[in-house]
């Protein structure tokens, strides 16, 4: 039992299950799944569909945080990537007009470039990660505006609209297509982390970068790679989000999503100081965050109160993840049981 509760993924899972149980009682039809238009339909499916962008970001964010850094530019990268993809689909960029493949490739390349830029600033120029990625956080939405020439791009009538829409909102074998993307990238990243020494090196440099360097680990290169992965995954998230709303809104696409991504990593029980990490746990964290958002909407909580409610849930969750807090609470509990026995 102790071994189980010590496992990093245990508490995020418990939180998720508790939230689901709560919904079973208080949210009407929360678990109802029906078949509409040949695919599954219901709150749970919605959660799986909507959590995809956040899940991708939290994968990248987990790796970045493991180095002891943070990438707060992912929201802006989401905007840039969406802007590029939609502008090409819509044919307003002037090059690669209406080509789906070019749209996707260009969007992904933009994510790679953004990630490389962040990695370069952190690993080579040695700027503190928060400041380094702040640059792109600030500039990114401006860049996106330049691409869309300051307009909100809608692709409702573009020739490849249906295909593009499928990526973020379509269904394959009854389940959201976006979910498959998440699973694929989770698998790839786990492969990199578990089947090569990348995971070991990453943890090692996150805990003690001097020791790692003196053990022959190329600390700078690993940091560069990690920020690049984060940027790349953010560009996929950008494609999913813009596809889902059939358009690119440079001001609001992925706004504050970097905070939710960091939150998912934290809820997953990963230390924000870097070092040991678990990508799967962050995914569960992302699922929890999305589930919480959906729950709050399903309960009809007034929008003004949503962030407050979120904050309370998060505080409780964080407290329960702390060993010393649990010990105190449960010790007190045991003592009172003993006292009752004696009486």
């Amino acid at each position: 039992m102790k071994k189980l509760t010590r496992n990093q993924i245990f508490w995020p899972l418990v939180a998720l299950i508790v939230l689901l149980i709560y919904n079973a009682f208080f949210a009407k039809n929360f678990f109802k799944i029906s078949v509409v238009d040949g695919h599954l339909y219901g709150n749970l499916i919605d959660i799986l569909k909507n959590f995809a962008p956040l899940a991708l970001l939290s994968i990248g964010m987990t790796l970045v945080i493991a180095t002891g850094g943070v990438d707060i530019s992912v929201g802006s990268v989401v905007a840039i990537s969406g802007a590029i993809a939609c502008s090409i689909i819509d044919g307003r960029l002037g090059i690669f007009n209406h080509s789906l493949v070019s749209a996707l490739v260009s969007a992904l390349l933009s994510g790679l470039a953004c990630g490389l830029w962040n990695g370069f600033l952190v690993a080579k120029v040695k700027i503190q990660p928060m400041v380094a990625t702040l640059i792109l956080l600030t500039a990114g939405r401006g860049i996106a505006q330049l691409i869309t020439k300051g307009k909100i791009v809608t692709i409702n009538s573009a020739p490849m609209m249906k295909e593009y829409y499928f990526i973020g909102a379509g269904y394959l074998l009854g389940l959201p297509f976006a979910l498959y993307i998440v699973i694929a990238f989770l698998f790839l990243v786990l492969l990199l982390v578990k089947r090569t020494a990348f995971g070991l090196f990453l943890q090692s440099l996150g805990i003690n970068s001097k020791s790692s360097m003196l053990s022959g680990i190329n600390v700078d290169r690993i940091k560069l790679v990690v920020y690049t992965i984060s940027g790349f995954l953010a560009s996929i998230a950008g494609i999913l989000i813009s596809s889902n709303i059939k358009g690119a809104d440079c001001n609001n696409a992925g706004l504050f999503i970097e905070l939710d991504a960091i939150l998912s990593v934290a809820i997953g029980g990963n230390s924000l100081n870097g070092g040991k990490f678990m990508v799967q746990a962050s995914i569960v964290g992302a699922l929890f965050v999305q589930c919480l958002t959906t729950t709050v909407y399903a309960l009809g909580v007034p929008p003004e109160a949503i962030s407050l409610l979120k904050a309370i849930v998060i505080i409780v969750l964080c407290l329960f993840q702390s060993d010393s807090f649990r010990q105190r609470v449960f010790k007190g509990f045991k003592r009172s049981v003993k006292g009752a026995d004696a009486a």
């Binding site: 070991l200 003690n208 020791s211 053990s215």
Partner: peptide
């Protein structure tokens, strides 16, 4: 500060340089 990687296990600490070499 330049030797051990505190939160890693003994196994991981021993293997680190060999893995980097390979």
């Amino acid at each position: 500060s330049e030797g051990i990687v505190g939160e890693l296990t003994i196994r991981e600490n021993i293997i680190l340089a060999l893995q980097a070499k390979k």
